[in-house]
Amino acid sequence: MAADAVQVAPDVYKILFENERVRLIEARLRPGAATAMHHHRDNLVYNLTDGAVTFTDESGETIEVSLVAGETMWFPAVDHSTHNTGSTEVRALLFELK
């Protein structure tokens, strides 16, 4: 398992709230920026901005995702890297379950 997202990319991921059951993280990724491989627990994502990202998992498989402000997405626990392939900063709230 890869290291925690906040440890790997503290310039991208900021903890806004945490208790024994959930962790709320703000993600901000500039256009063209990327993160190293990192881990997320099961999480619900709420997109604050429109954007485009590519996720690459530990096997090297990539998924391109179009983000729409106000939409939510569910992700099971995952190790991946993230690349902002769009022209705007990507901003989202991640609600990680413990």
Rank of each mutant, 00 (worst) to 15 (best):
M1T: 14
M1I: 13
A2N: 08
A3E: 10
D4T: 08
A5I: 12
V6G: 02
V8Q: 02
D11E: 05
K14M: 08
F17V: 03
E18P: 04
N19H: 01
N19L: 00
E20K: 12
R23F: 09
L24M: 12
I25K: 04
I25L: 09
A27I: 05
A27V: 07
L29T: 02
L29M: 06
A34R: 05
A36Y: 03
A36V: 11
H38A: 05
H38Q: 03
H40I: 09
H40Y: 12
N43L: 05
L44G: 07
Y46G: 06
L48Y: 01
L48M: 05
L48K: 04
T49Y: 03
G51K: 03
V53R: 00
T54N: 00
F55I: 01
F55K: 00
T56W: 07
T56I: 05
T56E: 10
D57H: 02
D57C: 01
D57S: 01
E58Y: 11
E61I: 09
E64R: 15
E64K: 11
E64I: 14
V68Y: 13
A69K: 04
E71A: 14
E71L: 10
P76I: 10
A77L: 15
A77W: 11
V78E: 07
D79N: 04
H80C: 05
T82E: 03
H83Y: 13
H83N: 12
N84K: 15
T85M: 02
T85A: 06
S87H: 04
S87R: 01
S87I: 01
T88H: 12
T88A: 11
E89Y: 02
R91P: 06
A92N: 12
L94P: 13
